[in-house]
């Protein structure tokens, strides 16, 4: 899973998709494509976005959910904890809270 996580984060378009899902979780493919094209002026096909989403899904950063006829993409930031736990320690209170 770790390799998939770092691979997923290595691409700027995938990081932009995560930015947009942070702003609003639960987006259709159409909404994600629209945001990339209209807000970020990224020239990328729907198939290309689908492939990026598949990589994010393999890393556990994006989860899909069907509601009736629709399919939504949700953000899951849980896998990112591996990064802080590996290099910044596992203290759940974090370094900042020691010195408010």
């Amino acid at each position: 899973m770790a390799d998939e996580l770092y691979k997923a984060l290595a691409d700027p378009t995938r990081r932009t998709i995560l930015d947009e899902l942070t702003e609003q979780s639960g987006q259709t493919l159409f909404e994600i494509c629209s945001r990339l094209a209209m807000k970020h002026r990224l020239d990328i096909s729907r198939q290309g976005v689908s492939q990026h989403l598949a990589v994010l899904e393999a890393a556990g950063l994006v989860e899909t959910r069907r509601e009736g006829r629709y399919k939504f993409h949700d953000l899951n930031t849980a896998p990112l904890r591996q990064i802080t736990e590996r290099w910044l320690g596992t203290d759940p209170s974090g370094p900042d809270k020691e010195n408010p």
């Binding site: 987006q27 259709t28 159409f30 909404e31 629209s34 945001r35 209209m38 807000k39 002026r41 629709y70």
Partner: peptide, 15 residues
């Protein structure tokens, strides 16, 4: 709504 209002550059849309 399956998409709430979002400002996308020159246009704001919802679905």
């Amino acid at each position: 709504f399956v998409q709430e209002p979002v400002e996308m550059g020159p246009v704001t849309t919802a679905v």
